[in-house]
Amino acid sequence: MVLSGDDGAELAPDVDALYREHGRTVLRWVMRLGGPGIDAEDAVHDVFVVAKRRLGAFDGPGKVTTWLFRTTEKVVQAARRKQRLRRWLSLSGEPGAAGISTSNPTPGDALDRRRDVEIVYRILDRLPARQRQILILFEMEEMATEEIGELMGAKGSTVRVWLFRARARFLAEHQRLFSGKDEGP
């Protein structure tokens, strides 16, 4: 990938290439890390806005996917903060706007899928940020613990310890939710 200077017009083709190669992946990261409450399109847009501005600063030797992931992570964190603020102000998060595809075979399937996603994120949102992220990357993104370690700047063995704790917490919250003892966050 040829990197240009600070001029936006010169950078644009490289961002195009970046998008062509990684756009779908970034969209998936956003949808999964963000959950159903955030506007996935907005967030991906923001990721590439940042990418466009900062592409010149990317000089390796890290992978471009790692760099993109970290940008995505920051954008999603900001979107989730905004979502929490809005929820606190009872503005709701424009439900149904993002995170769940609308192309479903039947209305019943769509409801089931929405419910499953809501259940998972209701639980995930109670986990500490790192545990939440690791579970999503391992179980939903199907990444290896070593790969997750690369993204998070940790050893694979450390990630496995974090994953163990994250799973225990997820399981406890899952059981609490379905035992009728759930009293909300």
Binding site: R28, R32, G99, D112, R113, D116, V117, V120, Y121, E139
Partner: peptide, 8 residues
Amino acid sequence: RARDATEP
């Protein structure tokens, strides 16, 4: 199921 539902 959540993984499948969040596949773009």
